[in-house]
Structure formats: C-alpha cells, structure tokens
Simulated scan of single mutants.
Amino acid sequence: MESILKKMRVEVNSNLYLKEPFSSDLGSLIVSEGTQMIQDMGIEIFTFKKLAQQIGSTEAAIYRYFENKHMLLLYLSAWYWAWMEHNLVFATSNIKDPYVRLGVAVQLMVYGPSCLENEYLDPKLLRKLVVNESIKGYLTKSVDAEHESGIFAQVYRFGERISSIIREINPSYEFPKTLVSTVMESSLLQSFNSLHLPGMTDAGHEGTERFQFFHQLVLKAISNA
C-alpha cells in the first residue's frame, strides 16, 4: 500500500489553481516551498514576494499558478484531504467489519494519514499545516462562492466515505455528516490545543487519549440513536 501511495499524485479541483503546479519544476517548487513557508511563518505573514525570493523566481511567475496565497492554502488543504481519502480507502479495503473500518477512520481523523511518504508533497508537513492554518482558509466571506465552485470537494468526499460507514452500522442514525464533520474539525482543534493551548484539552500531543475520546464519542452517538 505505502509503495503505491508514495508515487501517487492526488487530484484536486482545477478551480484551485490557474496552472497545474506539478506540470513543471517551478510549479512543484512553488507548492513544496510554499507549504514549508506557510507552516513556518503562518499564512498572515507569508507572501508570494517572500516565496519568490526563497525559490529564486518572480512574483509574476507564481501568480501564473495561483491567484493568491489564499488559493494556495486552499489547494494544500484540498491536497491533504484527498490524500486522507486515499489512505482511508487503502487502509479499509480488506476489512469487512464496519466497526473496525470506523475505528480506522477515526484514527486517521485524529492522528492524520498513516502513509507518510509521497514523492510530490510531504504528508507530515501537510498535516502540520492543516492543523495550524487550514481553518483560516474556510472562515472567509468568499466561502459561499468557493463552495459553489466545488473547491471543497475533497473534504466532502472524505467525510462522505466515513458517513457511509456510520450508515452501514446504524441506518437509522440521523446525523452522520454532522457527526463526522464535528470530529474532523474538533480533532484538528484538539491537536492544535495539545501543542499550543494545553489548558484547553485533557489529551497530550502524544498517546492515545484523543483517539479514545473521539472513538467513544462516535460509538456512543450512533449506538444511542
């Protein structure tokens, strides 16, 4: 599985970019160095001017690939969720028991991808960026138009796969999408809190406490319906 995923380039909505980044060495460099710089300094301080200086190019060249830094952040977030979907599909492909598949899904949501190598983007770095920065890409006035353009398709698809497992376990449960999106968002926030605001969580960055909390939360919700 890992050898297949390592060489896989995930597909994201084409509305996220002006030119496919991995179609050229410059585009690949923009994405890889941009990921590192956004994680290091935050999206607020990051600029295309700083990225151009880092990679020895021009701002104009970067703007041929992405409309602005906001779209680059959304592109990276979409790439992460598409990667997570591939991880989920491969990790559960031979598991018949839906409860076991649900446990795998919760573990992925809580701790991030299980396959941590890819030739195009570093999943470990992407995970850090999503924990620290991704919410800044969603809470904007442009989110409705972006939703209409389909650029959140990857996160929807990942969530829908997990929702389908919940419906398989309990077809009468009324809120599978709400439950899954709550765990997706809250698990990222709790991971952030464990690193930066430890007084806001009972679970440390290491250990199994966060998985136990969210796993129990999901199982109790769908079993008490």
Results as ranks from 00 to 15, higher is better:
S3R: 11
K6P: 02
K6G: 04
K6T: 09
K6N: 10
K7C: 09
V10Q: 10
N13M: 04
L18I: 13
D25N: 09
G27W: 01
V31R: 08
V31D: 11
E33R: 13
G42H: 08
G42K: 05
G42C: 02
E44D: 11
F46R: 03
T47P: 04
F48L: 06
K49Q: 11
K50I: 05
Q53T: 09
E59S: 06
E59T: 13
A61V: 06
Y63F: 09
R64M: 06
Y65R: 14
H70C: 01
W83C: 05
H86V: 00
N87A: 08
L88I: 02
L88P: 03
L88T: 02
V89E: 15
S93P: 00
S93F: 01
S93V: 09
N94L: 07
I95P: 04
P98N: 13
V100M: 09
V100E: 15
R101Q: 10
L102A: 12
L102E: 08
V104D: 14
V106D: 07
V106G: 02
L108N: 08
Y111I: 00
L116V: 14
E117R: 11
D122S: 08
N132R: 08
S134Y: 05
T140K: 15
T140L: 15
S142E: 15
V143E: 15
S149M: 12
I151G: 05
I151C: 13
R161S: 15
R161A: 12
I162S: 12
S163K: 14
I165Y: 14
R167E: 14
Y173T: 02
K177H: 15
T178V: 08
V180I: 15
S181R: 10
S181T: 15
S187C: 03
S187E: 04
Q190D: 13
Q190T: 06
N193T: 00
H196A: 05
L197W: 05
T201V: 05
T201R: 05
T201K: 04
D202I: 07
A203D: 02
G204R: 11
H205L: 07
G207Y: 07
T208S: 14
E209C: 02
E209G: 04
R210D: 00
R210M: 01
R210I: 02
F211R: 02
F211L: 12
H215M: 08
H215A: 12
V218Y: 04
L219T: 15
L219D: 06
K220A: 12
I222G: 11
S223W: 07
